[in-house]
Computed example of a mutant assay.
Amino acid sequence: MPEADPAGARGGEPVPVEAGGDGDERAELVALRKENAQLKRANDVLRTASAFFAAQLDPSRPR
């Protein structure tokens, strides 16, 4: 059975990593999955901030 990726690309759940890859490929895969998760979190923050500021600029919104 393949090992699980500790970074967990699916919301913290372990993700199987293909067996047979060398150590460098596995390390790169883990690093890329970690970076991908960080970018998704940043995107969520930016999306929320964008909605907040759009609501502030909406003239039909009661204050």
Rank of each mutant, 00 (worst) to 15 (best):
A37P: 00
P14I: 05
D24G: 12
V30E: 02
P16F: 01
R26M: 07
V30F: 02
V30T: 04
L32M: 12
D24C: 07
D22I: 04
K40I: 08
E13V: 06
G23E: 15
D22M: 05
K34Q: 14
R10K: 14
A37Y: 00
R33E: 02
D24S: 13
E13S: 13
R10A: 09
L29V: 08
L29M: 12
P16A: 10
D22P: 02
A31Q: 10
V17Y: 00
V17W: 00
R33W: 02
L29H: 09
G8Q: 01
D24F: 10
D24A: 15
V15R: 03
R26C: 03
R41I: 03
E13K: 15
A37C: 05
V30D: 00
L32E: 13
N36Y: 07
G8E: 01
A37L: 08
G12K: 06
R41G: 04
N36V: 00
D22H: 05
V17P: 00
R41Y: 03
G12E: 02
L32Y: 07
E18N: 08
L39H: 05
A19P: 06
E28H: 11
L39P: 01
A9I: 07
V15E: 03
G21T: 11
A31R: 14
V17M: 14
L39D: 04
D24E: 15
E35W: 04
E13D: 12
V15H: 01
